[in-house]
Design a protein around this nucleic acid. Structure first.
Lengths: 243, 243
DNA sequence: TGAAAAATTAATGTCAGACATTTATCCTCA
DNA sequence: TGAGGATAAATGTCTGACATTAATTTTTCA
């Protein structure tokens, strides 16, 4: 584990990369303790603050965790699905908000991904998943529901559908994508959405899931995509007409 | 933008979170310059090293970039697809290597995701995408190819398929997943894979893409999944028999 | 007068050493 | 034997300084 002091890059960045490589390539394993900051500083021939900056970079990516006190130190962190998930949502959200991604493109990707688990979910969903979907539909049908609550319920509905596939890797990938894109979709369709039609489409999807008919689930999702795209297009047209 | 000095969390973590929120919620926009380290230290009433640790955390997530010299400083970074991509691959790779995810589960997720863009890719792929796929197939058929090169070509083939959908959001999500899972799949199937059968299945997929038949592309992917799962199961059985 | 060269300045990058705080462990003493 | 305090080791934070980089301004000289 070496660094090049003559490189143009920051020392802390180089050190972080060196340690990350050790982790990714398996030479540092989960829960293993890294040398203390003083020892690392000595090893890399840099000061303690520089080492600390490097460790903070790794901590920001959940690659390590630190503990104070005697027998404390930095430990290789077992990346949990939850952490990976949170990171994915942040990254995807920023990516969509900072780049000129059209609503059409984002929406298309979101539904394509969700259809990817339609067949598996229809086949494997438990009664719990189905009940969760029904419960969210019922909530969405309440008249007094705020827009924020409706959107949250929308996310929960799709989350239950995705989880029904019983594949944590798939859930991690998809739910991250769905959650990241939902705010963007809501922001655009907030005002003009017709709740009754959304609820009807959700019911159609839930019925297909109940019947364990993957094809019909996918069709329902496609119909929901159409509805969303049409709505967005209409709103966009109205907005440009006003201006 | 405030922090709570009495909180249990690290000051640098609190500061990083505070600034990240400003960025995510759009109060700090792309290319905007943050206050200097000294000004931030003053504002949060902490020392400069503490501020620096916070900034390094943000830099590790590509949320900011720093420039030295007069008129330098920290700037809000436009997260590019490439950066988002690289982060996703790192996260997914670690997640798979550190958790007890069965090969079966990872493989299932990978192919389900890839099938998600089969229809779009078949419909929209350009001649370039098809040519790229054919080129990789041709490379995979060379006798002298090393295992590493074969795997790299395998990734490139699927990458071309995914990119054919012409949806950057989808490419970002899927190619990240495919790339993260490929090493795991290769590691397991390295020794026992029958290249001729893989190449034949790739050809079947490419043919379907050429004919712009999304259903057949999906079928081809499913066949490839079966082949991979069967191979893995056989290797796993052999390995346990030896032990 | 104009352009090259030098000085200035403002920022990040790095270092050294100190103190504060937390926590596991050992030791003492009742 | 058990409880409580001393001890040690580690991270967390601060102060102050210097190094390095790069834009800007000033100076100098052809």
């Amino acid at each position: 584990m070496r660094i090049d002091p003559k490189s143009a890059a920051d020392l802390s960045a180089q050190i972080a990369t060196a340690i990350r490589d050790e982790i990714v390539e398996g030479r540092l394993i989960v829960d293993q303790r890294l040398p203390s900051e003083a020892e690392l500083a000595d090893h890399f021939d840099v000061s303690r603050p520089t080492v600390r900056e490097a460790l903070k970079r790794l901590a920001a990516q959940s690659l390590i965790r630190t503990q104070r006190g005697a027998s404390g130190g930095a430990f290789v962190n077992r990346l949990s699905f939850e952490e990976a998930y949170a990171q994915q949502i942040t990254t995807s959200t920023l990516l969509l908000s900072m780049n000129t991604v059209s609503f059409e493109t984002a929406c298309e990707a979101r539904f394509a991904l969700e259809r990817a688990c339609a067949a598996l979910s229809a086949q494997r969903r438990t009664a719990d998943h189905l009940a969760a979907m029904r419960a969210e539909i019922h909530r969405q049908d309440q008249p007094g529901l705020t827009d924020e609550a409706f959107c949250a319920s929308d996310v929960a509905f799709h989350r239950a559908l995705v989880d029904g596939a019983g594949n944590p890797v798939l859930s991690y990938q998809l739910a991250g994508a769905v959650e990241a894109m939902q705010p963007l979709m809501n922001m655009i369709t907030f005002t003009g959405r017709d709740r009754a039609r959304i609820v009807a489409l959700h019911e159609r999807i839930a019925d297909a899931v109940e019947d364990q008919d993957g094809g019909r689930v996918a069709d329902g999702l496609s119909a929901l995509e159409d509805e969303t795209q049409t709505l967005a297009a209409r709103l966009f047209a109205e907005r440009t007409a006003e201006a």
